[in-house]
Amino acid sequence: MTMRVMKARTIADDLVDFLANNHGCLARVHSTFHHAVNLLIRQDELITLTNQGEIAPMGCMVDGNDIFKQYLRPGDEVILDMDRIVAANGAFSVYLCEAQVWKSEILADLDPRPLDELEQTTHQLTEWLGQQPALGLLPLLAPLTNQGANILQPDNNIYSRYIANDLKDFTDAMLASDWELALSITDRLLGFGMGSTPSCDDFLAANLLVLSLVERLNPGFYPWVGGFCNTVANKAERSTTLISLNMLRHAGNGKMSRSHQRLVQTCLFGDTGDLKHLANQVLQHGATSGGDFLLGLVCALNWYRNSKMDHSKEGEEAWVESMQSQPVSIL
């Protein structure tokens, strides 16, 4: 009859901040899975405890193999203290003191890859992705990365078929640097697809992640990115699941779970590991989440490469012009 005591192995730095400023508050269980539980804080934010999988923003990895579903039900109360998290029903507690702190934000103060390397990396990733099982949105890989394939193939699944044209419109708008159009098209994408994080949300999360990093890498060149990311997150509040909303918010702030973080870092900055290995780790996420994210990533990298080439072509003039752009309106 003693309480099960778990030790945290890793904790995200944003969660540490939250606990330091809000210790002694109550969270409610939002959703339970076998090896993870999501806790709801404030209005619509989630903290994740897990003992498998990996560390993510506002997340905490604990030791053991326990099945969280046995301890908690949605609606149960959990007490958050500075050094521990305790289930109010006494089922378990998590001691945080010895956990390693994980930086949730991708560092943007590293040297970015030169363009030709970026192109090579993108090409490698796209080719590799083309060899993976075509689940989720992956049947749209070729048409979306402009490999000339027909947008509607007979073996597309029902979701990819339905959303194909909207996704193409989105990537075309981004490539044409029409971010306002792209933003409006997200209305036709958010919340669409299988899973607790619908496929299109995973796709968009990759885009938001790249956008937010790119903005930091090139200060002043993409002033619209902040507003873009915020707007997508606001739209998501009404159109998708809470879990997905949180993912999109984090992505817009340059944060995503560790494997995604490392992959994107490798693509943009080079050498934090073997590209295919990292991509494979991401692919393992969910049934199609990983694949959908990777599709979004290659599209976003294409956009970025394109826009960098535009910028270098236009030179100083373009820089001045973008500095004088309209301030971003947050819808």
């Binding site: 697809g193 607790s196 299109c200």
Partner: peptide, 17 residues
């Protein structure tokens, strides 16, 4: 049969089917 989260777009798909 369609199994999914009840987002507007998923419901649109369901309607479409």
């Amino acid at each position: 049969v369609l199994v999914g989260m009840g987002t507007d777009l998923n419901l649109d798909l369901a309607r479409g089917l």
